[in-house]
Amino acid sequence: MNILRLAGDMTHLISVIVLLLKIHSIKSCAGISLKTQELYALVFVSRYLNIFTDFISLYNTIMKLIFLGTSFSIVWYMRYHKIVRRSYDKDQDTFRHYFLVLPCLILALLINERFTFKEIMWTFSLYLEAVAILPQLVLLQRTKNTDNLTVQYIFLLGAYRALYILNWIYRYFTEPDYLHWITWISGLVQTILYGDFFYYYFLSWKNNVKLQLPA
């Protein structure tokens, strides 16, 4: 495993920790999209179907369990925790996320590397992850007073995607037969979706003001 890939995984892990820390310590999920979190839970379930059938490494299995566990606990907190659920911006988080699920499933049935159940679910998870941030970005744009932790969380998620692209470039040049167009294109689409956010993130950082996306 190369350093870019490890850095990507760690950034992803830290983003989840930041989010859980926010929810757990200040008992608030204000500014966080439940739609996006539910999509991520679905992404991990469909991608990690091989968790008990194909052993890759201890690192791989542990990370999969962490991502599955944390994504479901975040959804649980936002939906059912007595205090946390009160801070959820339900009226603002109106993105119809099932409109993303169906097209991704159809696309996975049409464009995949192999027509098997596991492979189609895996491809579906790639397509869905690419667009899963959309409800969160819409919510961010609508929220007036976004707290710092929410902004850091989204920044870390975007950084994780950018690092994965660098990892793919590195692997392409160092490993023979490493060619994965479906993963690369969906990963690229996903990173592009963060482009606008990154632009305003650096602007707010440079000018030392609170980040606010223009409506």
Binding site: N60, F67, Y178
Partner: peptide, 10 residues
């Protein structure tokens, strides 16, 4: 044969 190297990624 299609290489499955990508499957070691998360």
């Amino acid at each position: 044969i299609q290489s499955d190297s990508i499957k070691d990624e998360l």
